[in-house]
Design a protein around this nucleic acid. Structure first.
Lengths: 347, 347
DNA sequence: CAGGATATTGCAACCGATTGCACAATTTAT
DNA sequence: ATAAATTGTGCAATCGGTTGCAATATCCTG
């Protein structure tokens, strides 16, 4: 039989000092009504006795948890790792705890995550949507209790919801326009689910860039996938077999872009001479692969920090200005995977 | 003023049905003493009324939270993402929640994470240690309350603690021996903090493999760093400048291995002809870079699953057999970064 | 139909921290 | 020295779900 030492409570501390639990409670949270010396004594005895604040009792009483929930599609990308690092910095600086969960790109699992987080009474939620989420019904719980929700990166139109994003349309436009400038005429696009702003906006940017440069849009050049390595490989194989072969590709993340490159290079296709490649995200791999990958840089950590800050300020004053969308800068990083030396020396 | 609709509790549900809260509580958790029809009625009314289980009240009463804490050095590696995916699968299958936090490789932050998790009364803890943790004092809280702790990957000697690892010594040995087989005589090793088993064991394996092959150990060939890209780049620069130039390198992760490769290739050094490279982890990048990277494959997801399973079974029966260490298989994946065709065709 | 076995439900006391309000102690003002 | 003001502590109710045990309802057997 294991001796499970019972919890030390403020009652125990109070008894030891011949004080009341109220006083102990107040002393531990530095309430101004308690005498300095009393506070000192209480704190020291509490430490000695091994007292530890019980979050549940407190949360139960306060109906606040000082905890923020985070739901992301997956953790396994540099983007998300960086965004979460940013979130964590801000929340922990502000005394909030963090509960992180993954939707695995599934709306069903996303709903389950939200439900769990709701049951654990998070004070607020930061979320980047799953690939196949197509409505926000599973958020109604939160909305009905006025629990603030902030979307970042993969956001949704939602009345009165705050969102932190980049201008995916412009980024997609710039990447595509850059390929055009480099002389590409038949530019493939590989994107993710059009349900997600990040992919549909980039796609829209791609189309507009083509239009503005007098290049006819060709649906056969557009592919859609889960943006995994595999989807890049498959797309590259299709490109290789296409009759008039494409001469450029803009793909919506670096993971797939790199897979495309590997597959093309394996087939003896030259990058960028035969096919120029542009990705998205500026993952570390983009400057490790040969040739280095042209991509869109994208302030992941900052996005996390800003979203977290916005949430916390919303938690503070319930009436905080309803800034509804924050758009962060992005940046086209041109590298050798798309840079043709032809007519481009310093021009 | 926002109307914050009050919580719906089992009391409300009970009142609506003219039943007692006890009955409602039992019905909602499918207690066998409650009549089927009563359960149905209660569940349906509860749903209609918008009842939601309050985890705090429950946890407070039960002094159990059905929550498991996870502390990892960083989230931004494929290894960790995979391990966490494994953990999440098992825990969610078993009805446990997960709270994930990062120590950022700092013992101080690790202690803070543990303290927070302890205050939120996690039922158990899964942890992979930070680089500079050198004692387990910050675990005493948990130990004193008999909260089970399971170490995975980056573990520690700890009386009566369960650990899930691979045989890093053998893996290090095999990687090094492989380089020797390929004809390397002056093999550099780049590792992380020797406080961590993963790095010290791999290093020990490296030394033994040299010894067993009659190669004198040379301290000047050993470098230590934080295993970031930068540490790889710096190490490569040093290698390039060394008098008799090294002809091989075994580095303890793929991130740094790839950085080493990029730097060496940039200087016109051929891989594997001039310098053969072996990494560790089998990150996706290892088969994307050119030449493909030889590395140690390492069952990340499985490690997470096994650790989580072990923890859950320990939570179930407090007397569970004290399997103290579980060692998973690993696998040397030979690719072109180390494969010299010299005398090696099928031999 | 009696009498006990079995199936259902309710009572009430927890779990531990918080806080409005009342009361006590100490200081200041008159 | 006494009233008034200020400071410091304690009382007791509250947050919502759980559960041992008692109480009531229903079923069975002969």
């Amino acid at each position: 039989m294991i001796k499970t030492s019972r919890e030390v409570t403020i009652y125990d501390v109070a008894k030891a000092l011949n004080l009341s639990p109220s006083t102990v409670s107040r002393a531990l949270k530095d309430h101004p009504h308690i005498k300095q010396e009393t506070k000192r004594k209480i704190r020291s005895v509490a430490r000695e006795m091994g007292y530890r604040h019980n979050k549940f009792a407190s949360s139960l009483r306060l109906t606040k948890t000082q905890t923020i929930g985070v739901v992301v599609p997956r953790l396994n990308s540099y983007f998300m790792a960086a965004a979460i690092a940013g979130i964590e910095k801000i929340t922990s600086d502000n005394g909030y705890g963090l509960v992180i969960s993954q939707s695995q790109e599934s709306a069903r699992k996303e709903a389950a995550c939200i439900s769990t987080l709701f049951n654990s009474r998070v004070d607020g939620l930061l979320i980047s949507l799953a690939a196949d989420t197509d409505n926000l019904e599973h958020f109604n719980l939160l909305f009905s209790k006025n629990i603030p929700v902030i979307f970042f990166d993969r956001v949704s139109d939602c009345y009165n919801c705050m969102r932190v994003v980049i201008d995916n349309y412009r980024a997609g436009y710039e990447a595509t326009a850059h390929l055009v400038e480099q002389g590409c005429k038949r530019i493939v696009h590989l994107g993710g689910s059009l349900r997600r702003n990040v992919y549909s906006d980039r796609f829209a940017g791609y189309r507009q860039a083509l239009a503005d440069n007098g290049i006819a849009f060709d649906q056969r050049l557009v592919f859609s996938g889960d943006m995994s390595e595999l989807s890049g490989t498959v797309t590259a194989q299709k490109m290789i077999r296409m009759k008039p072969r494409p001469d450029g590709i803009f793909t919506s993340n670096d993971t797939s872009a790199v897979a495309v490159m590997v597959e093309l290079l394996d087939s003896g296709i030259r990058i960028p001479e035969d096919i120029a490649v542009a990705g998205f995200n500026n993952d570390p791999i983009s400057h490790l692969i040969t040739p280095n990958l042209t991509t869109i840089d994208y302030p992941a950590r900052e996005m996390g920090e800003i979203a977290a800050n916005a949430l916390i300020s919303k938690l503070g004053n319930s009436e905080s200005a309803s800034l509804s969308t924050i758009i962060l800068r992005h940046n086209l990083v041109v590298r050798s995977s798309s840079l043709r030396n032809i007519n481009n020396n310093k021009k």
